[in-house]
Design a protein around this nucleic acid. Structure first.
Ligand SMILES: NC(=O)c1ccc[n+]([C@@H]2O[C@H](COP(=O)([O-])OP(=O)(O)OC[C@H]3O[C@@H](n4cnc5c(N)ncnc54)[C@H](O)[C@@H]3O)[C@@H](O)[C@H]2O)c1
Ligand SMILES: NC(=O)c1ccc[n+]([C@@H]2O[C@H](COP(=O)([O-])OP(=O)(O)OC[C@H]3O[C@@H](n4cnc5c(N)ncnc54)[C@H](O)[C@@H]3O)[C@@H](O)[C@H]2O)c1
Lengths: 215, 215
DNA sequence: GGAATATCGAGAAAACGGTATCGATAAATC
DNA sequence: GATTTATCGATACCGTTTTCTCGATATTCC
């Protein structure tokens, strides 16, 4: 194996890795110690050689006839994805959706901990939601700055998203995870990940529409 | 333009179309009547010729030097994605996440209406959540069957997801929108769309990890 | 009315990701 | 110890998606 890292994994690979991790986790809990590409591929409905390519990015090498060391592989994925050390995040927009994210424990296990929530609604500010304190929007910049928080999560209405993003960037956040249906303008060096649920729904509906018209 | 339709649009195109739609909507509200690929591309940070190719799938043709008719294009996207007639959906798992989806009005505007929610928790059953009645899980199959509901949304814990999916399929649902972190086994002909938030987070964290190690 | 220009549409080329093939090797079997 | 077999790793292939290039055309401006 030559000098790894440096070459970043393609995005489709990154998106599959959590699935591998979850599967390996269940195998580990079942007491297994090794695992083959073939078995992973079968369980996840993927191509074995594709799985092998993905796993190669983590730097782990397997043994013919045996497969990979289960724990070694799992931990390699975890560290490759940056799940080993926990990064702090703030969430802005403590509505229904933001609340769901606040209460989702899995994020912490995946290296991201939401440490504070923000909102403009006076009746929310000062409350605790899912164990996290809701602060006034005014305090957003200072909180990010003084605690050096790298991740900002946006779950405000779309109209407010750009302003929130600007504050986050200005305060030094390095990555933004945006759930609002808005195109955000951020500087080149900011990592921006936009989750567009409606896009996923569009794939589903259009398949359904094709199917319906075929009948 | 030859016989359109028949050839399904590639998935990346489908995922971009909602973004175009949203942008066109804002232009329409601003009183514009035509729009060019160039302007769309600039606003959404995409390649103009790529945008042109995407739009071609809707069957709309533009005029040189002018662009496309804004409303015509917007409506073509809407109908192409199957947003014109509303399809009914049921949601299973009325927890924090399910509740957020239940209250999200945008889905209805995008052709999907959640008509009922289901849960196993006795204190939830019988309640109204976000204006929708929560029914007992036992009633799931019958509801789908008698009302011919095409879409099932799964927001239960991962462990319960497969069982819920089985019930949905058995009752005649045509598409499943799954938010639980589980690999679902469904028959070939079922449309399955899996939203894995952790995969999106993985892209973000790994970029952050790369960035951190580069410093 | 003619020249200039922005924009579309179509087809070619390139890049990317996914799939298949093949040799190598470690374990298992005989 | 030789043979068989499962599995890895590398390479080559293929399809899809993106990017590039070109010609056509409607509008604008002179
Ligand atoms: N609910 C869903 O299922 C869902 C799904 C996908 C995307 N989204 C998107 O997520 C966002 C939130 O959705 P929701 O359903 O939770 O809406 P919501 O109305 O329940 O919550 C929005 C919250 O943001 C707060 N807010 C408004 N302006 C703000 C500002 N400038 N700064 C800080 N906070 C502000 C509001 O007080 C409110 O608490 C929306 O953009 C929505 O489109 C929601
Ligand atoms: N909360 C989030 O931000 C988030 C994000 C991504 C994915 N998810 C996934 O969405 C799912 C729900 O998350 P949540 O945070 O709402 O959890 P939750 O615990 O708040 O809600 C789960 C709900 O499902 C119900 N339930 C349990 N078993 C059921 C069954 N067999 N049939 C019907 N209902 C059943 C429970 O009573 C509960 O109301 C989980 O799989 C979670 O991993 C959640």
């Amino acid at each position: 194996m030559p000098h790894r890292n440096q070459m970043p994994a393609p995005q489709p690979t990154l998106r599959r890795l959590p699935g591998y991790f979850r599967f390996l986790q269940t195998l580990a809990e079942a007491g297994e110690t090794t695992v083959s590409c073939t078995s992973i591929a079968k369980a996840l409905h993927l191509d074995p050689t594709g799985v092998r390519k993905d796993l190669a990015f983590t730097g782990i090498i397997g043994k013919p006839r045996v497969g990979y060391s289960l724990l070694e592989l799992r931990d390699a994925i975890s560290s490759f994805l940056g799940w080993d050390d926990i990064r702090e995040a703030v969430l802005v927009g403590t509505g229904d959706f933001g609340r769901a994210l606040l209460g989702y424990e899995l994020f912490r296990e995946r290296g991201v901990e939401i440490v504070a929530a923000f909102d403009v609604a006076p009746d929310l500010v000062g409350q605790k939601v899912r164990g996290k304190e809701v602060l006034a929007l005014d305090a957003l910049g200072d909180t990010i700055r003084t605690r050096q928080i790298p991740i900002g999560i946006i779950t405000t209405p779309a109209a407010a998203a750009q302003g929130v993003a600007d504050t986050m960037v200005e305060a030094g956040a390095k990555a933004i995870w945006n759930f609002a249906p808005a195109v955000l303008e951020v500087p080149e060096h900011i990592i921006l990940e936009h989750v567009e649920l409606v896009a996923s729904l569009a794939v589903l509906s259009s398949k359904l529409a094709v199917r319906a018209s075929a009948e």
